[in-house]
Computed example of a mutant assay.
Amino acid sequence: MSSGAILLTGATGFLGRRLCRELLVASEADVHCLLRDSDTAPASERLRRVAPARSRRLIAVPGDLTAPLLGLTPDRYDELATTVNAVYHCAASVNLAAAYGRTAPVNVSGTERLLTLLDRRAELGRPPARLHFVSSAGVFVTALATGTITVSEGTVPTRATAGPSGYLLSKADAEQRVDQALDRGTDITIHRPGIITGDSATGATSPDTDLLGCLLRAAVALHSIPVGPGHLPMETVDTVARGIVRLSQTAPRGSVFHLTRPVRIDVPFIALQRAGYPLLPVPEAGWYHQVWQHAWEPEVYPAYVVSTASGLTEHTAPRLPVIDSTATYAAARSVGIDAPPLDAPYFDRLVANLIAAGALLPP
């Protein structure tokens, strides 16, 4: 990784914490973390909990991603612009049920603010800095409806491919702003994870934000699991974080990466049966019908939100495009990343962790 400081957004989120640690391991650079805090002291304390062993290289930047100058004073803003030569934009307003107007300030305007920071760096006579933008494979959730069967790293998302969710529409719009900046000559790479789920070794996850965890909780509440030919695009949080950091070290300008692999729909859910839950197999479309019928139940509602974000109706199963990540994982192997298997033992660890965390009641 090139010398110089790094700016990271979203450092205290599920992926952001892992990304922060990977950045600290991969380089000796100071990592400036933009946090929505009014004071430096509490922001610094939050960062120390992210990476205690390397916290001396973590610099809290209390600010606001949605505000002019990132909520900083003009002098502090220019200092940041001249100091950092790489920006990892991981912050996002992730709420599949929220309207576009609630997610766009962070996801669209926040991205624009960071692009403006890079422009300011150029105005101050500093060498170009690169933006590593974390998007989402979800920007293609309704690509089949547009006639796109397979989505490669080179496929350009549109509002038509992003479905009805305000969150995914805002991510598609953010990618449009990034593409426009690329056309102007800005140095950018794009990373599109799918469902980001638990650690490959331990299964530890974030029950509130792991979409797979939401689906597993719904299955337990419904006493059934979906079976069928469908797939879910996913990757472990550690693989995504390591992939973003290592690929960013050698990727040419304008590179796009799909950090996601397809897993047959029933594979994660069968782990619930192995854990002792008495769950009835139901064809995939019928299972999602049950989700709609029980959407008012607290443990089922998040799965209902996931289904509506995919553009589903009550009697349909998800029809997702094939997310081609062949080039991404070939590049990952070339920088020493061998993605761990997403197999039965892994999902057993994930389910065990959800039970231990209290996200699933014991069977």
Rank of each mutant, 00 (worst) to 15 (best):
D78F: 01
A352I: 06
D266C: 03
L280V: 15
S152Q: 05
R159E: 11
L70M: 02
A309Y: 09
P252A: 14
A172R: 07
T111W: 12
R56E: 15
P105W: 13
V31R: 11
R242S: 12
G311Y: 09
T103I: 12
T205W: 03
Q273W: 06
Y288D: 04
P278K: 03
Y88R: 02
L8A: 07
T239F: 01
G243K: 05
R121D: 11
I323P: 03
V291N: 10
V300S: 13
F269H: 11
G10M: 08
T328L: 07
R113P: 00
H32N: 07
G138H: 04
G228Y: 05
V178L: 06
R274S: 09
P298A: 15
P233C: 00
V61Q: 03
E299D: 15
E297N: 11
A97L: 04
T260K: 00
R177G: 01
D338N: 04
A174W: 03
L169N: 09
G13D: 13
T239A: 02
G10V: 06
D179I: 02
G358H: 12
N95H: 12
T205V: 02
Y288A: 03
M1I: 09
T111D: 11
L35T: 10
N85G: 12
I244Q: 01
A344M: 06
A104Q: 10
R333I: 00
G286H: 13
Q180S: 14
V263T: 10
P340A: 12
A251I: 06
S170D: 04
S200P: 01
P321L: 08
P229C: 00
T103N: 15
R217V: 03
A275R: 14
A339T: 13
V305F: 05
V335T: 01
H315K: 13
T326F: 07
A26S: 11
D78W: 00
P226Y: 03
P207H: 09
T146Y: 03
K171R: 14
P233H: 12
S248F: 03
G243P: 03
A219H: 11
T202H: 04
L114G: 12
C214A: 15
G101E: 15
I149Q: 13
A271D: 00
G163R: 08
G336N: 06
D119N: 13
V256T: 15
G154A: 15
T161A: 06
I188Q: 08
D64H: 07
Q273S: 11
V31G: 08
A99D: 15
V240Y: 02
E22V: 09
T209Q: 06
S248L: 05
T66I: 08
D78I: 02
V322S: 10
T308A: 04
L259D: 02
T236N: 10
C33P: 12
Y304T: 08
T250K: 06
L280D: 11
L360R: 04
T82H: 03
V156H: 03
I196W: 03
A43N: 14
Y301T: 12
F347A: 01
L124A: 02
R120S: 07
S206R: 08
S38L: 08
W287T: 08
T73K: 11
A81R: 11
V84S: 02
A271I: 00
A359N: 09
W287E: 09
G138R: 04
